[in-house]
Design a protein around this nucleic acid. Sequence first.
DNA 1: CTGATTTGACCGTA
DNA 2: TACGGTCAAATCAG
Length: 283
Amino acid sequence: MTTLGLQGDELLAQLRELLYLPSSPTTTSGDERPRRRRGNKKRCRNDNETNNGGEEAHPHHCCSGKTRKTTKQQKSSKYLLVTSVPDFDGYQWRKYGQKQIEGATYARSYYRCTRSAEQGCPAKRTVQRNDDGGEDGGNPAKYTVVYMGEHTCTANDSLEAPVILETTAVVVPAVSATSSTNKQQRRPQHDDDTAAINSSMAGSCCSSTTTTATGIIESPATSDITWSSSDHVDDYSGLFPVYDSWAPASLQEMEDFTGPIRSPVHIPADGWTIDHFLLHAAM
DNA sequence: CTGATTTGACCGTA
DNA sequence: TACGGTCAAATCAG
């Protein structure tokens, strides 16, 4: 990944600008947005009001025995990725929380698979901007993305025919970070890193992906995507079929692409076949 | 109107 | 007890 990498970098930079900086003249909405402010009013537990009599017709599960599964469950499978483009992983995520973490400069965002509701997909991920990098002109900000749980969701059948996004050649094993350019930032948010982090990239959940293996991957284009596992480490690298998906054939091509990314499927390019990734994931 | 995001409160674990 | 993860009302945007 030499020249290719360089070129990719360049293109990526441009792409990034297009995507993340809708900087469009309309940046307006970004700053002065009045932003609603108001905490939630949840108060079940102590809200005993409902509990007066002792009945438990309490609709809120937060109070019921339904306990939240927190850290414990997630430990089962947890994978870490460091990238400057946290959004492009081929899945659709819905943000359900954000929190300022102790010792961290930037807040951590919590996402879950958009299909979690419909199909009960347990996949989740957290995205946190690293302290270093980014901002001023220099290198792009890096984000640490932690994936938890495996995707059990499936694409909506044939409706979601796989759309090919990658058009690159293989360079180095790199995770199927399905690249795509199609990101339709809902809004230009600028609140800080969350803006960039904000994701919900196109692509649908289909096969389980990165949640079962581990390895250090390098994306030639960004050269900063790194995978690792927080729990079990080591030797998974070999298991993970990785492709580079970050060397866009041409920016033009990317711009032309307007449809949503449907699934992390790869196009057959010299050297490698389609869905290697999917097959593997299915195992 | 519907769906996504924001964000303070709540809760479990360490 | 502190911290991190999750919930869900409020709010925004298409």
